[in-house]
Amino acid sequence: MSATATRTLLRNGRALRPGRVLTFVGLLVLALVWIYPFIWLLSASVKDSSEIFGSGLDLIPDQFVWENYLRAWNEAGFASYFVNSVLITAGTVLLVVVRSALAGYVLGRFDFPGKKLLIGVFLVTFFLPEGYTIIPVTQLTDQLGLLNTHAGVILGLGAGGQIASTLLYAGYFRGLPKELEESAKLDGAGPFRTFFQIMMPMAWPITATVVILTFLFAWNTYLLPLVFTLSEPDLRTLAIGMTVFVGEYGQDWSGMAAAAVISLVPVVVVFVILQRKFVDSIAGAVKQ
């Protein structure tokens, strides 16, 4: 009997067993417990504040209070926090993609003096925690006159670090046939045109991965925007706005829940749409 036949037989034999149903029910219960915090949050965001802690474990509100969202969006300033988060995330993603694609291309395909040193520096600093460098980075941004600007936050997030993205590009470009450059040269294309017109379009799977990983990082980051923008209401991102909200309206729990939903919805929606790519990106990044 071949292995495939055995497998088919085993699977069919087990299809209707109670074990399979039990596994499913067990996993379903666990998964519901797992995402319960989000279900609770959605429920709290449309409750009246007094009902959140007053009605025990009931998830269905007596009355849907949609004003919570209006209050968070308009009065608490989440409209502008949202715009700031989008601007800073987009800027960081763009910076990281351009920077790491350019560097990854030459690291992956060419030898040049100083290459080993550069890779050595990358590997030494690969696991550097953010908390370690926040003071010099703040000082540097201050000296550049960028402390109270979006550009300051974007540079702080995307200019350094992000080695994984560079290495992903390097690994991908290394695997492409070298005839690509040769034929481009015959067509009279210089290195810049070759890169932007031939290499970059070919590397789109890596670009997608880098965009996803950087988007997650920039949207969810906290320490650097906290230090840079806490005292600047016009620059605050959603996470910082949330911190301020807790300080100013500590008792407005339903407003807080609505604000949290506003902050989490973009990243969750993007995840649900692109979930396959998310999971593959992360699994792919770790396999490297």
């Binding site: 351009v98 350019l102 030459v106 010099p136 980075v137 540097l140 200019a159 350094g160 670090g161 290195p191």
Partner: peptide, 21 residues
């Protein structure tokens, strides 16, 4: 041109990772 390609990384990484370190 290889160093031109590396310039954003050299500047950014130098200023925001190596220098702070």
């Amino acid at each position: 041109w290889i160093y031109v390609f590396l310039l954003p990384t050299l500047l950014g990484y130098g200023a925001y990772t190596v220098y702070p370190l």
